[in-house]
């Protein structure tokens, strides 16, 4: 803490205005913006600015974060209208400011910058995001070796950190929350394309609100901080599902 105080004092008086969306249930009928002046430190991420506000200016501000290194996926917010990991976005990127911080679009706001992700969690489990094996009771020590090619086939989709930036970027999801959405479909593909998986997710993917709801805007892919490319995952499954529908005997 003292380190920060020192550094802040030593830094010139350069500050940046941060406009934070506040929503206090019972108090605010709808979100309002509150402005704060935050020191503009060269190495501060937007999340550091929020933590500065919470520590020094206004302890009532609520937001989620944990790892500060882009792996936990909990700090996603809308920064100047774009879904971003706030721990991976520098304040200095916004020059003189102001920077506008809002909760992720497309999810109900619980408080300030905290959104309700229960809906996504239900969607995620609906695609059975685990390796499905059939008819075996292997010893605990059993191994399932994979070749580098077999790993390569799904690795990209396994990088997802459930940060939900892709949902916030997707107009289809924001307009119609029944859409299964980018990350859930990409994670379904992560298991579909795994050589060890024996499951079949056709029943949950081949639906109007699933892959067929996607109109290939492509913004999920632009928003994804982990280069999962959910748009591609969805397009690939459209082709798979279409071929399976016309050639009923082909499985994948």
């Amino acid at each position: 803490m003292t380190d920060t105080t020192e550094a802040v004092r030593r830094a010139s008086t350069r500050t940046i205005r941060v406009e934070v969306s506040r929503y206090r249930p019972g108090e605010d009928a709808e979100p309002v913006f509150q402005e704060y002046e935050v020191p503009l430190m060269a190495d501060w991420a937007v999340l550091d600015g929020l933590n500065y506000i919470k520590d020094r200016l206004d302890g009532s501000l609520s937001f989620r974060w944990s790892c500060r290194m882009g792996v936990c996926g909990s700090c996603g917010m809308n920064v100047n209208g774009e879904p971003r990991l706030t721990c991976g976005t520098f304040l200095s990127e916004y020059g003189e400011g102001p920077v506008r911080i809002e909760p992720l679009k497309g999810f109900p706001v619980i408080r300030d910058l905290v959104v309700d992700i229960d809906d996504f969690l239900a969607k995620l489990s609906s695609v059975r995001p685990w390796l499905i094996r059939e008819g075996e009771e292997p010893p605990l020590t059993a191994e399932y070796a994979q070749t580098p090619e077999q790993l390569e086939a799904y690795k990209q989709y396994s990088m997802c950190i459930n940060c939900l930036l892709c949902y916030s970027a997707c107009p289809v999801y924001v307009l119609d929350p029944d859409f299964l959405g980018p990350a859930a479909i990409a994670l379904a593909q992560r298991y579909n394309l795994d050589s060890r998986d024996m499951g079949d997710r056709f029943d949950v993917l081949n639906l109007e609100d699933s892959v067929w709801g996607c109109t290939f805007v492509g913004e999920c892919t632009s928003a994804c901080p982990k280069h999962v490319d959910p748009a591609e995952a969805i397009q690939r499954y459209k082709l798979t599902a279409a071929l399976r529908s016309v050639l009923p005997w082909s499985r994948r």
Binding site: Y23, P25, G26, E30, P31, F107, P108, V109, I110, R111, V115, D116, P171, V174, L175
Partner: peptide, 14 residues
């Protein structure tokens, strides 16, 4: 406290 949380209205100019 927050039945369902706050949901903004549809943005006609998305």
């Amino acid at each position: 406290v927050t039945p369902g949380g706050y949901r903004p209205r549809r943005d006609a100019f998305w």
